[in-house]
Design a binder for these strands. Structure first.
Lengths: 174, 174
DNA sequence: GGGATGCGCTTGAATGTTCAAGTAAAGGCT
DNA sequence: AGCCTTTACTTGAACATTCAAGCGCATCCC
């Protein structure tokens, strides 16, 4: 669907088309990008009533010290814009799984805290998610394949991260 | 973010947690799923004013005989629900790149046709997309890595396709 | 001190995707 | 023929995500 000689064109000299092999693998990847996220999302929505992003937020919080994370850190650890996170937290707050906490009204930095109910919820739904991860990915690949997949994924995300210059900013603690 | 011992739980016996290595690779994949689609989408939107799905639709049509495809075939070749396709085609029609054609008003099967302007548009935007595909994926992996990635992707999509029982239906030609 | 600039976060509108009906032709089954 | 089910597609509302401001605090520089 993507990088093919659309009918009969020839590419500009500086952008060679993909070879047949490359094209085959590229398409496999494109299919994967379409299929896997929605399969994962579907399982979580069906069995747990949260989407994959909300799950990531809950999981990230559960691992943090005090089950608490500044929103900006949380946004980058859950791979989404701050705006997306803000909306998601609003939803999670409505369900009682997360609370916002503005530390001392002097400082405008806010944190999100995983509540006890939120942790319980996460522990309840995690096994189903792991089962799905195994069923769709981990258990259908040999250990060597999984590790090759991991390597490739890391190389690609590194390339993508390169042009979105990381804000390496220090976190002024107010 | 995903499949970790969320704090201190032990898994039910039938769903073992992932090993540290598995977890590392799984997370790399999850990051990839978050980063790559949005990078690809961003390039297309910025430079071409279409999203990745619309691009897929245009590309699929450009390869079909007569630049024409029945909507159901198109939906499965572009990996989306029929509803999503229908909305997308409405947008593409508004831009003049695609036309709907109901073959003989006796039959309710509809087809989508890529117009000449649509083909021109696709040919104009394809090189930029290929360049991005190379920059983010093809050129950052060794040939062996790319082919391993393709293998893994095929294995995973096969596993996912297994439980969504393929409608192998014949296409009654009216 | 006081304006300009930046950071951290929120908000609302615009856009896109999903979900649940709804329509309408085809194809059985009796 | 009459009815039921399936297939193919559309539609509108609900929901999520992005995009573009906006706000308040802090900081820098004059």
């Amino acid at each position: 669907m993507s990088t093919d000689r659309t009918h009969e064109t020839t590419p500009p000299a500086d952008v060679p088309w993909l070879s047949p092999d490359q094209q085959r693998d590229w398409r496999a990847l494109v299919d994967l990008l379409a299929v896997l996220p929605s399969a994962l999302d579907a399982q979580l929505k069906r069995d747990a009533g949260v989407n994959a992003y909300e799950y990531q937020v809950l999981a990230a919080l559960s691992e943090a010290a005090d089950r608490t994370l500044g929103l900006t850190e949380l946004a980058s650890s859950a791979q989404g814009s701050l705006s997306r996170l803000s909306h998601a937290i609003t939803r999670l707050e409505r369900s009682g799984w997360v609370e916002r906490r503005h530390l001392a009204d002097g400082c405008r930095r806010a944190k999100a805290v995983l509540t006890d109910t939120g942790l319980a919820k996460l522990q309840e739904i995690a096994p189903g998610h792991v089962r799905e991860a195994r069923r769709l990915v981990v258990d259908v690949l040999t250990p060597a394949q999984l590790s090759a997949l991991g390597d490739a994924a890391r190389a690609i995300t590194a390339a993508a991260a390169a042009d979105a210059p990381r804000t390496s900013g220090e976190i002024g603690d107010c």
